[in-house]
C-alpha cells in the first residue's frame, strides 16, 4: 500500500532528520513510530504527504510516487491521505461541522467551500462521521468550545471525511490525560479495523504503542533501528532506540507517575461523597 524507499531529509540548517528510511506498510496495518523526541518521527510523517519536502527517496502510495508530483497532482493525492495532529490543529474559530467538512476541501470547488454549500452527500457523510465519533450534538458548536478529547475526535472525523486510503497520525495523545488517551487510541484502532485502513502513528508513549499497535518501528537519529511486532520490543530493543540512560529515566518517570495516580485515586476514594 505505502512504500517508502530510501527516504532522506536534511534541513537547510544542515540537520539530518531522516537518512535512508525504507518501510513497507500493508493495507490495514497499524504502525507505531517510536523514538526519542527529535529522532525524525514527525519529519517522516510529514514527508509522506509532503508538508515537509523530502530531500531524496521515493514515497510510493499505490503506484504513484508522491515525491515527484507537481502542485496540482500533489493536492489530488493528498486527499487520499488523512492526517490527525498533535494538539488537534482544528480551525478553532469555525464550528465543528465546518471542521469536519474541511476534510472535503480537496474535492469541492472554491465557491462551494467559501459559501459553505457542500454537496448533500458530503454533509450526510459528515453527520455520519460525527455520529461515529460520538459528537452528533456538538455539530454547531465552535471548535474551541470543546474539551481536548472531543477536539481530537473532531480531528479524526475530519481526516475520515477525506475518505482516505491511509492515515497519518502525529502524536494523537500528546496533550490528553491518560484515560482520554486510551479512549482516543481505541477509537482510532476500531475505525482502522472497520475500514481496513493502514495507519502510521507517531507516538511517544511506549506502553500505549505496545497495547494498540500491530507493528512498531523505532527511529533513532533519523534511522530505523527497530522494526517488528510489539512482543519483540524487549528491554534491549528499547535501549537501542532510546539509549540506556534515557530509557531508564523514562521508565522511572512512568512508574512515578503511575504511583502518583494510584495515590491520588486512593485519596479521592477516601473523600466522603
Amino acid at each position: 500500500m505505502l512504500r517508502l524507499i530510501g527516504l532522506s531529509k536534511t534541513y537547510k540548517t544542515g540537520d539530518t532528520a531522516l537518512s535512508d528510511v525504507s518501510i513497507d506498510v500493508a493495507r490495514g496495518q497499524l504502525v507505531g513510530l517510536i523514538g526519542p523526541s527529535g529522532a525524525g518521527e514527525s519529519t517522516l510523517i510529514r514527508c509522506i504527504n509532503r508538508l515537509v519536502e523530502p530531500s531524496a527517496g521515493q514515497v510510493m502510495l499505490g503506484d504513484t510516487d508522491l515525491a515527484q508530483l507537481g502542485t496540482a497532482d500533489l493536492r489530488r493525492q493528498r486527499r487520499r491521505i488523512g492526517m490527525i495532529f498533535q494538539e488537534y490543529a482544528l480551525v478553532e474559530r469555525l464550528t465543528v461541522m465546518e471542521n469536519v467538512l474541511s476534510g472535503r476541501l480537496g474535492y469541492v470547488p472554491f465557491w462551494r467551500s467559501w459559501l459553505r454549500r457542500y454537496p448533500p452527500a458530503d454533509i450526510r457523510r459528515a453527520y455520519e462521521l460525527l455520529d461515529r465519533v460520538g459528537l452528533m450534538q456538538h455539530a454547531d458548536k465552535r471548535a474551541d468550545a470543546l474539551s481536548g478529547g472531543q477536539r481530537q475526535r473532531v480531528g479524526i472525523a475530519r481526516a475520515l471525511a477525506q475518505e482516505p486510503e491511509l492515515l497519518l497520525v502525529d502524536e494523537p495523545t500528546a496533550s490528553l490525560d491518560p484515560k482520554t488517551s486510551r479512549q482516543i487510541m481505541r477509537l482510532l484502532t476500531e475505525i482502522c479495523e472497520e475500514r481496513n485502513l493502514p495507519a502510521i502513528v507517531n507516538i511517544h508513549d511506549v506502553p500505549l504503542a505496545q497495547q494498540f499497535m500491530q507493528r512498531i518501528i523505532g527511529l533513532r537519529a533519523g534511522r530505523v533501528v527497530f522494526d517488528g511486532p510489539p512482543a519483540e520490543l524487549t528491554e534491549t530493543a528499547l535501549t537501542t532506540i532510546y539509549g540506556a540512560e534515557d530509557w531508564n529515566a523514562m521508565r522511572q518517570g512512568d512508574e512515578e507517575q503511575a504511583e502518583a495516580q494510584a495515590d491520588a485515586k486512593r485519596r479521592l476514594e477516601q473523600v466522603p461523597a
Binding site: M97, Y118, I123
Partner: peptide
C-alpha cells in the same frame, strides 16, 4: 442506513 442523516447544514450565525 445513511439516509438517516440530514443532508443539509447551515452555519449558525455567530455574532
Amino acid at each position: 442506513m445513511s439516509t438517516a442523516y440530514p443532508d443539509t447544514w447551515h452555519r449558525p450565525p455567530q455574532i
